[in-house]
């Protein structure tokens, strides 16, 4: 099961639980007036509910924060550095630094399989997104391309194949067609 499927299952489970609770609560309100006995000690129950919710949130925080993408593979030397300059509606990718005055990219980029690589992503005009999709059209990882800044995205590709890059920040009318690809082998 990949990350996306896991997220969807968690969400659908929450969706069903919440709907069920609301439906049962609604059902319980259809009783005759004289039988309205409500909840006993609601304040105390609310207190326990809040405590339980806090504990769940703290656990979730401590589990998920260390998995943040910023420092992935930060202790390793990348086998390859790829420079990316995004521009309406192209991605220039090159293993050499790209001259912003006359940007151009390599015809094809080949990434070694199973080794850490680094993308140095920036933009020459507006904000763009740099979303890496695998051959099954699943989003693998991403960063933003912001003018004036370089974002360094490190990743290790374990599956060979063609990967597509899609722009993931709305950048103008031709945004859906802004794409490129590279090969992992």
């Amino acid at each position: 099961m990949n990350d996306h499927q896991f997220i969807l299952i968690i969400f659908l489970a929450a969706f069903i639980i919440i709907t069920a609770v609301f439906f049962l609560t609604y059902r319980s309100s259809l009783r005759p007036e004289e039988k309205s006995d409500g909840i006993k000690k609601p304040l105390q129950k609310r207190f326990y509910f809040l405590i339980a919710l806090t504990i769940v949130l703290v656990i979730l925080l401590s589990v998920t924060i260390p998995k943040s993408p910023y420092f992935k593979y930060s202790d390793q030397t990348p086998a390859k550095v790829v420079f990316v300059d995004a521009m309406q509606y192209y991605f220039f990718m090159s293993e050499q630094a790209i001259d912003p005055a006359k940007p151009s990219g390599a015809d094809s980029i080949i990434i070694p399989v199973g080794q850490p690589v680094e993308f140095r992503v920036t933009s020459l005009d507006v904000n763009h997104g740099f979303g890496i999709y695998n051959s099954d059209a699943q989003l693998v990882t991403q960063t933003q391309a912001m003018p004036g800044y370089v974002n360094r995205l490190r990743w290790k590709f374990d599956t060979p194949g063609t990967y597509h890059i899609l722009c993931l920040e709305y950048c103008g009318a031709n945004h859906p067609n802004m794409r490129t690809s590279f090969i992992v082998k």
Partner: peptide, 12 residues
């Protein structure tokens, strides 16, 4: 966009 890109050259 007019940054000095030579700093990015030959990195790594």
């Amino acid at each position: 966009s007019e940054y000095n890109f030579s700093e990015e050259e030959n990195i790594n």
